[in-house]
Design a protein around this nucleic acid. Structure first.
Length: 478
RNA sequence: GGCCCCAUCGUCUAUCGGUUAGGACGUCAGCUUCUCAAGCUGAAAAGAGGAGUUCGAUUCUCCUUGGGGCUACCA
């Protein structure tokens, strides 16, 4: 007997960039839906007018799409539904589960200050909870600024079974009379999210741990409205090195930043999936599709995970190494300052073959390959291998040049043959590897660290290769 | 201060009471080697503390400690 169709949601507020923790919450909600053949929805929680960041909703949506977390149905914008929330608030008012409050922000602040000083529990003192009907009416008639608060019943126990944490219990005496409608007419998160989750038929809420302590309020709202609450799961936070939760101000952990830095969506997905979850076996590489199939919600952890960027980098380099060449070239178009299309595709392909293992991010391409596109600057004193000597170095370069020059044209098509030529040069001239390999490699790349000389020759081709060696030779004998 | 959550190598984690506590990243060493990567081999590295339950606890219970979240007319 199948239950109702699973519907999950990710509900970001558009106050900045999507960070890695939010992405993980979205991923788990997505995976849970997919695993159960259900739907994953997105809702924009833009009820705080003061914190809105222009276009951040679009940017968040774009990043989700980039990650491959496709949602069903058009995203709901809460700001366009204020009358709906007011209507529900009115119902609560009528049933006596909510009340008007006319306390000024000023008074509330003083109250808090005093409570802190006296080391009392901090919260609203329910000053307006029992105002008389006529008093309320006259204040409303005078247009006094007001809000609507939830009337929390006293002395009750609220408990629920968190999908991840098990049974959690709260006493309503510790719960504040939560604001439901703010004085600007917008709802708070608590009202809006409960209403929307109900109206969108959300069956499972997967959200951050920071919501755990407001869950009893939400449960109370479901009860007041007479609705069945969804299953709720509170995911542990992803935290920084300081073990504090990632804040949106930390732009360096935003998914957009990782994208800009040359990380691949599949690497990010793979990485965050394992931040708080692990499969039954010891496999470590999963695509989004595989995760959708094999995700086991029961194995979500309770404890927060510290972000380990080394691992992300490792996973990213793995995906770069394994990626299809055409797709890689496609991605590089956006990242490289080099106009990739103006070069022969075979040439680019060869470059990738010899440099790919060294790339940790897409950004590394330019850093690792610049000498393929422009003649390198070669310094004379670096041409000599540190353990080698000038006479051998000169002999090595010139012999290598001669042997390469007289090798048949077809040799340049084979990495193995080119390597062979260099090896035989060493033997024939009675030199050491460092007398030949180092100077030739440096002459070709202008870099102390690079792929092997044979690889460089193979990529650069006969003409350019010999030209660079000749130039270096002139430098050492002049 | 109050309420709530959490606790295995530096980090992410495996372990459904009995294991030489396993894997991965990172670190270090070696192989390879002209260099740097990649690859391969190996090493160091963990159950916060204390009670209890049990023949036996990393695993179950409680306490302590530590960390975190919430405590807004923010989400």
């Amino acid at each position: 007997m199948p239950g109702p169709i699973v519907r999950t949601r990710f509900a970001p507020s558009p106050t900045g960039e999507l960070h890695i923790g939010g992405a993980r919450t979205a991923l788990y909600a997505y995976l849970f839906a997919k695993k159960n053949d259900g739907y994953f929805l997105v809702r924009i929680e833009d009820t705080d007018q003061s914190r809105l960041v222009k276009d951040s909703d679009l940017r968040i949506l774009e990043v989700l799409e980039w990650l491959g977390l496709n949602w069903a149905e058009d995203p709901i914008y809460q700001s366009s539904r204020t009358s709906l929330y007011k209507e529900y608030a009115r119902q609560l008012l009528e049933k006596g589960h909510a009340y008007f409050c006319f306390c000024s922000a000023d008074r509330l602040e003083k109250l808090r200050l005093e409570q802190t000083k006296k080391k009392q529990p901090i919260g609203y003192d329910r000053f307006c909870r029992n105002l008389k009907g006529e008093e309320i009416l006259s204040k409303l008639k005078n247009n006094e600024p007001h809000i609507i608060r939830m009337k929390i019943p006293l002395g009750e126990k609220i408990s629920f079974d968190d999908m991840i944490r098990g049974r959690v219990e709260f006493n309503t005496n510790n719960i504040d009379d939560q604001v439901l409608i703010k004085s600007d007419g917008f709802p708070t998160y608590h009202l809006a999210s409960v209403v929307d989750d109900y109206e969108s038929g959300i069956t499972h809420i997967l959200r951050g741990e920071e919501w755990l302590s407001s869950t009893p309020k939400h449960l109370l709202l479901y009860k007041f409205f007479g609705w069945h609450p969804p299953v709720i799961a509170h995911l542990p936070n992803i935290v920084g090195k300081d073990k504090k939760k990632l804040s949106k101000r930390e732009g360096d952990v935003s998914v957009e930043k990782f994208k800009k830095d040359g990380y691949l969506p599949e690497a990010i997905i793979n990485f965050i999936a394992f931040l708080g979850w692990s499969p039954n076996d010891e496999r470590e590489f999963f695509t989004l599709k595989e995760l959708s199939r094999e995700f086991i919600p029961e194995k979500i952890h309770k404890n927060p995970a510290i972000l380990d960027l080394d691992k992300l980098q490792y996973i990213n380099s793995y995906y770069i190494r394994k990626m299809n060449e055409d797709i890689l070239i496609d991605l590089l178009r956006d990242f490289s300052k080099i106009d990739i299309d103006s070069y022969d595709k075979e040439f680019i392909g060869k470059i990738l073959k010899v440099t790919r293992d060294r790339m940790r991010t897409l950004k590394d391409f330019d850093l690792l390959t610049n000498y393929f596109f422009a003649s390198p600057k070669v310094k004379k004193d670096i041409l000599k291998f540190p353990k080698s000597f000038w006479p051998e170095t000169i002999k090595g370069i010139s012999a290598a040049r001669d042997n390469l020059a007289k090798a048949p044209e077809s040799s340049w098509k084979s990495l193995g043959i080119l390597e062979d030529i260099l090896k035989r040069t060493v033997e024939a001239e009675n030199l050491k590897n460092g007398d030949v390999f180092w100077p030739v490699r440096y002459a070709l790349s202008g870099e102390e660290k690079s792929p092997s000389p044979a690889e460089l020759l193979w990529v650069l081709g006969r003409e350019e290769g010999l030209k660079r060696i000749k130039k270096a030779l002139e430098k050492v004998i002049s």
